[in-house]
Write a protein that binds this DNA or RNA. Structure first.
Lengths: 205, 205
DNA sequence: TTTGAACATTGTCCTACGTCAACGTTTTTG
DNA sequence: CAAAAACGTTGACGTAGGACAATGTTCAAA
């Protein structure tokens, strides 16, 4: 596993870096150009290298990330050294170590940009300030929380009691992008099985 | 605020019904008597029998429940007929089929009052009306969502890769009440193992 | 208080999946 | 561009925990 530093990029109000964030917001809430500009002003562009770690366990998460390019992976490592992948955030979606960000307790997880990535970063204070001062963003956050909860639920009871091969079928049904975009090893850790097992199951389709 | 009104509240014969809800709210947000009364007015007391089903899969969830007495269990049944318990709500806490309530899609789960119970019921419209019209309740809902998400996260990833006996130890550490209050069968379905396995493991501790 | 049904426990057996290892291929990096 | 590291696949084998069943116990309905 490779640890690399973030490279901060200066805020450029003229760049087209907010196009995807604009789509994200306007797809979800009624808004206007002025509110959008207020929202955009809180986000700063950052570029990361392959396998950069944005957060490691024990650190308190301070930032929320919107993915412009590349993708983010959230994963844990248990005391046996086994990785467990929780979540992937691809282009056009938000991701962070939400439990740590919410209650400002040390995180249990890593945040990693698997590929070289471009992220829009907003820190916690700015984020909650937006939530409390703009109606649109308050609603966005509510939707994020509701969706995050529903996704988590589906992963619990969707996988509960499933055989490994059923998990693979579930993945092909609901997140086929993962199988093309992400290494087998990461997919396996997302499904809670070993790469060897996943490899065998895929050959059975 | 005028004195007559306070007295009217003080002598309200039904006030005891809202005692636990009052504690729930005041433990979480700054509030005042008037806001509390507005909130209480949206909830209606209901009593249920042992093993009553408040929701079955395929129905759309319309209500949120606050437990005064007894408790609620949420569970699913997969096509093999195996129960999977997702959540228990005991006295003084909220519970419902949140995914269905949020997006008004057919639920995948049962809601059951395992014991004869007393519930304060609020329907979806009233609930979201409260969220949108009272600052206190808006914050309560945000806290509910944040906590629900964090709980779900911990259950998924805390259990991922754990051996069965470690799940039992986890339960004794973090939810010991379950082991005294709930049948072995339900505990087992909550931990994702069979009652036989749970029985064997408990004898090893 | 009785009675039947659901539950808890424990034994025997079985299997899905993990572990470990070998080996070829792809990717990374100096 | 070459060496090394990481990855994917496949085989041999071990084991945690499920399936099934027998027996005793608890508990709710009448």
């Amino acid at each position: 596993m490779n640890t690399r530093r973030l490279q901060a990029i200066k805020y450029n109000p003229n760049a087209h870096v907010y196009q995807q964030l604009k789509k994200y917001v306007t797809d979800r809430v009624e808004t206007d150009e002025q509110a959008l500009q207020v929202i955009f002003a809180h986000f700063k562009l950052t570029k990361t290298k392959r396998n950069a770690l944005l957060l490691t366990p024990g650190q308190v998460c301070k930032d929320y990330y919107f993915v412009n390019k590349g993708f983010i992976r959230l994963f844990t490592v248990n005391q046996a050294g086994e990785e467990g992948t929780r979540y992937f955030a691809f282009e056009g979606s938000f991701g962070t170590a939400l439990p740590s960000l919410i209650d400002q307790q040390p995180a249990f997880e890593y945040i990693q940009t698997v590929e070289p990535s471009e992220l829009l970063v907003i820190n916690r204070e700015s984020f909650y300030q937006l939530v409390e001062t703009t109606k649109q963003f308050s609603l966005i956050y509510r939707q994020i929380l509701e969706a995050a909860f529903i996704t988590a639920q589906k992963r619990i009871y969707g996988f509960q009691g499933l055989e490994a091969i059923e998990k693979v079928r579930w993945l092909m049904e609901y997140q086929p992008k993962l199988l093309t975009r992400v290494s087998n090893k990461m997919v396996a850790s997302y499904l809670g099985m070993t790469p060897a097992t996943l490899s065998r199951l895929k050959s059975k389709l």
